[in-house]
């Protein structure tokens, strides 16, 4: 990509006129406002609301990190929770057993999850389409069973779990989570506007054609998978301190795969801001239904998912782009 003008030309769909190029900065502006609000929130809202915003950020991170792999390549990964959970465990063990400082523990969570993804990716990414999805579902459940097994007991304390006492304030966790969200969105944005991002998208569009155009699809898929797991592991590693107690049932619960996926579908799979939008709206919605229909919250997500697939399969952002409410650009 040579000049800025050229880049706008490459990424803007619908005629390259200057106002469209200008509107493509809209996404950046929206996200800047979002981050500014989240930064100011500790001084604006009460503690209960701030807790909710923390969870919003956590789910945005999970959704956006899932989107890095599945949104770009179209390989729908159902093993995301495995990387979140492995990150949680790595971080919890580093703190509880090794006395590591919290930020190193979080970093370790990301690295262990990325390493786990790298190991798994070699066999997994040879599997295509829906078979990949089914296999990743098995990977997630298998990871849960193994982490709660007697084999892993010395490390994970199996079913009894790991209690955690971390001496950092809630607001530190909140800002750290916000920083992770900014990082993953920036990475997505850069990717979406790069040649590598286009090649990843070409895998989603038609993998065989991409191969025949010289795209090393295997390497790209592994890269995206590891990057996605890295952010999931960071998120899990940080969230472990919020939970202060880690056990296999909760760390590897399938809902932490499902909910970020539904959030991403809702906002717009494969877009930059889709996971932010979906994560924010649906987590606030989730908070609302917790207060009202409490135990049916997963069923409610199910209804959202069914409705999305039937009526708005591209998600909200693409729907808005198709109707001209938003410019057709990969920057949003």
């Amino acid at each position: 990509m040579s000049t800025r003008r050229e880049r706008a030309d490459s990424s803007v769909h619908g005629g390259g006129s200057s106002w469209v190029a200008w509107l493509s900065w809209l996404g950046v502006a929206i996200f800047a406002v979002y981050v500014a609000f989240m930064l100011a929130a500790p001084w604006l809202v009460n503690r209960g609301t701030l807790s909710l915003l923390y969870l919003v950020l956590y789910f945005v991170l999970l959704a956006a990190s899932w989107n890095l792999m599945s949104g770009f390549t179209g390989y729908i990964n159902f093993a995301h929770v495995a990387f979140i959970g492995v990150g949680m465990y790595a971080s919890a063990i580093a703190i509880a057993d090794l006395g590591a400082p919290w930020f190193l523990a979080v970093a370790l969570g990301g690295c262990v999850a990325a390493a786990y993804a790298a190991v798994l990716s070699v066999p997994l990414l040879r599997i295509k389409g829906p078979y990949f999805t089914i296999t990743t579902l098995a990977v997630a459940e298998g990871t849960r069973v193994i982490m709660s097994s007697a084999f892993m007991e010395p490390l994970t304390r199996a079913g009894s779990g790991i209690p955690l006492f971390v001496q950092i304030g809630f607001e530190t966790k909140y800002f750290a989570m916000l920083a992770l969200v900014v990082a993953v969105v920036v990475v997505t944005y850069v990717l979406a506007n790069s040649r590598i991002g286009l090649r990843l998208l070409s895998i989603r569009e038609d993998e065989r054609a991409a191969e025949n155009l010289g795209v090393n699809t295997t390497r790209l898929k592994i890269g995206a998978f590891v990057l996605s797991a890295f952010f999931a592991g960071l998120g899990g590693g940080l969230h472990a301190m919020y939970l202060s107690y880690i056990d296999p049932f909760n760390a590897f619960h399938i809902k932490y795969t499902v909910i970020p996926i539904i959030m991403t579908f809702f906002g717009g799979i494969g877009t930059v801001l889709g996971p932010v939008l979906g994560g924010t709206v649906l987590e606030l919605f989730n908070d609302y239904i917790w207060a009202h229909v409490l135990r049916l919250n997963l069923a409610t997500f199910g209804v959202v998912l069914v409705a999305l697939i039937l009526f708005m399969p591209q998600g909200l952002l693409e729907w808005l782009k198709d109707r001209g409410f938003l410019p057709k650009t990969r920057r949003i």
Binding site: S10, L201, S202, E205
Partner: peptide
């Protein structure tokens, strides 16, 4: 072809290098 990519984007995927891309 890559249906949900623009023509230019289709072209970019195929090029191994950046030389005179556009």
């Amino acid at each position: 072809v890559f249906p949900k990519m623009t023509l230019m984007e289709n072209m970019f995927v195929a090029s191994p290098g950046d030389h005179r891309l556009h």
